[in-house]
Design a protein around this nucleic acid. Structure first.
Lengths: 127, 127
DNA sequence: TTTAATAATAGGAACTGTTACTAATATTAA
DNA sequence: TTAATATTAGTAACAGTTCCTATTATTAAA
């Protein structure tokens, strides 16, 4: 675990201490309370760096901005097609997928992501 | 199957008659040979419309622009982390995932996507 | 068929999310 | 303490995509 700048640590801690999947903008607003002068660029730079280091996870959904997750254990995500909120799907991850895919694919499989979509509990009510 | 404009049909046909996963820009360049005045906006608008209708599939990878696929049967995609090319992974799709996820999730699961990443056969060589 | 209503277009401006640049500041190592 | 390095704030630039508007194409009605 490499040494981090104070800003980077704050960004990392913010993600570790929450269970949702905030956007860079949301993290930025949060961190601002402790670092009023922090810039959005710094947040983006450090979120990228942290996810390259494997300390956090980046979630790209294709609807709206990227999300970030302090939980790096493999797990599935769900995005609501109405409110675009991203939630965890808590089931045991199908670990065999990579091996399975490798058999059918002449390249190197390093990982995978599973994303579900539909309606979240909240939007289910409102139809 | 609704009636399409000539441009929309050309876009649809282009995707049906190829096996790769072109970007909107690539489709635009192709269609231009038959419709020299077609605009990029028209390509984007129709790609969106066609994927809402379920006639084509949109692939968002989080690295580079969206890709499009004329094959709407559920199948997995792979993106190379070096060249960003997107390829099919030809194995029987795990159809049980949705049902599995539904049991653990209080919202409505409508579908899922599985994406692999790693090195494609070409980039494997060059390291 | 003309005509009226509707749908779709081309072209370009505007927008969103993100990255890159730069001069200044902080950190570390000698 | 000083030199080298890392990181920052602030902002400009960028990529991809959507939106807008006046014009053109298509369709439906008379």
């Amino acid at each position: 675990m490499i040494k981090h700048s104070r800003q980077r640590d704050a960004i990392r801690d913010n993600l570790m201490n929450r269970c949702d999947h905030p956007t860079a903008e949301t993290v930025y607003m949060d961190i601002k309370e402790d670092f009023p002068n922090i810039s959005l660029g710094t947040v983006y730079r450090n979120l990228s760096l942290l996810s390259e280091l494997g300390e956090i996870q980046k979630i790209s959904t294709g609807a709206g901005p990227d999300r970030f997750d302090g939980n790096v254990k493999p797990h599935c995500h769900f995005q609501c097609r109405m409110c675009y909120n991203v939630l965890d799907i808590p089931f045991e991850y199908p670990e065999e997928l990579n091996a399975h895919a490798s058999k059918k694919f002449p390249g190197i499989i390093e990982g995978n992501t599973i994303q579900f979509f539909g309606l979240c509990p909240d939007c289910m009510q409102t139809h």
